[in-house]
């Protein structure tokens, strides 16, 4: 008996790894996705290892070396309005920008998945309470909601994380609920319940595996918006506080310099654009690699 079961499981495992290796194979064959992935990995690695890259101190300014143009000796990308090295600030800036730009989606993915799976599986009153609350948050355009909460809470890294996480929980919950109630209606769930399995066991064994990847794919499509919003909050002055290097904040403080050196002042925004573009293209690539029908 045990032997039969093991071989059965073995069969499933093979089919499972077959799917994922297929996804990986399609991803590797997609040049646009691979280029975007490479750029993002380089950005993340350079942000993490910034202190070991031999860069200038991103906080150390110089009164006499302010707003040096791109290509200045010793300052490859010039200096900002306080004479701080732009290259160093852009690379160090990736740390906070990427963290605040990606972390809220990760947090919202966990919280929204839990809420959505509970709502979708439980149905009834639980579903009504969770989903009607979610509807209320949908009444706010995401930019407005983020600015409203951050504006009320005040500037700061934690406050930005909180407000952006709140912004992205409702859309993820809605998708998680839709996928879960779809799976909930399938016969094998009924079979599992009829066999006497508890709700938690059914969710853990039968539901989660089937709903997480669509929720995950949807969550990746939100990262680009989150990135733009996070930097936007700092740009408005209600995100990261100076003098920390952060791309949105740098874009804001360099605005006063657009008449002195316009292209230098546009650099931090270019970083936000490239990152968000890569996130979007990567998300599209993962979606089409994972969804064979598409």
């Amino acid at each position: 008996m045990a032997l039969v079961e093991t071989s059965g499981l073995g069969g499933i495992t093979t089919a499972h790894s077959g799917y994922w290796s297929g996804v990986a194979r399609r991803l590797v064959r997609d040049p646009v996705t691979m280029i975007c992935l490479t750029i993002l990995v380089l950005l993340i690695l350079s942000a993490i290892f910034a202190p070991w890259l031999g860069l200038a101190d991103p906080h150390k300014g110089s009164m006499i070396a302010r707003l040096k143009p791109i290509g200045t000796e010793g300052h490859l990308l010039g200096t900002d309005e306080q004479g701080r090295d732009m290259l160093a600030r852009l690379i160090y800036g990736g740390r906070l920008t990427l963290f605040i730009g990606l972390m809220p989606v990760v947090l919202a993915f966990f919280i929204g998945s839990v809420l959505g799976i509970i709502a979708g599986y439980a149905g009834g009153l639980t579903n009504t309470i969770i989903m009607r609350t979610v509807d209320v948050f949908f009444a706010f355009p995401s930019v407005l909601l983020a600015i409203a909460i951050s504006g009320a809470l005040g500037a700061g890294i934690v406050n930005s994380l909180v407000s952006l996480t709140i912004v992205f929980i409702p859309p993820i919950t809605r998708v998680a609920e839709a996928v879960t109630s779809g799976v909930r209606a399938l016969d094998y769930i009924d079979a599992a319940r009829a066999s006497g399995a508890k709700a938690l066991t059914v969710i853990r064994v039968h539901v989660i595996g089937n709903v997480l990847s669509p929720i995950f794919v949807y969550a990746t499509s939100l990262t680009s918006v989150c990135m733009i919003l996070a930097a936007g909050l700092s740009f408005l002055g209600i995100g990261v506080r100076p003098p920390e290097p952060e791309w949105g904040l740098m874009l804001n403080t360099l605005r006063s310099a657009i008449y002195v050196d316009p292209w230098l002042s546009a650099l931090p925004g270019l970083m936000i654009f490239v990152t968000s573009l890569c996130l979007n293209l990567l998300s599209d690539g993962v979606r089409s690699a994972m969804n064979v029908r598409d």
Binding site: I228, R255, N280
Partner: peptide, 23 residues
């Protein structure tokens, strides 16, 4: 359209100002 939805529009605004107002 992908570039359009990926661009941080506050930055695009600054770039347009640089081109059409400053330059």
């Amino acid at each position: 359209s992908i570039a359009g939805v990926s661009v941080p529009n506050y930055w695009l605004g600054i770039v347009l100002v640089i081109i059409f107002s400053v330059s």
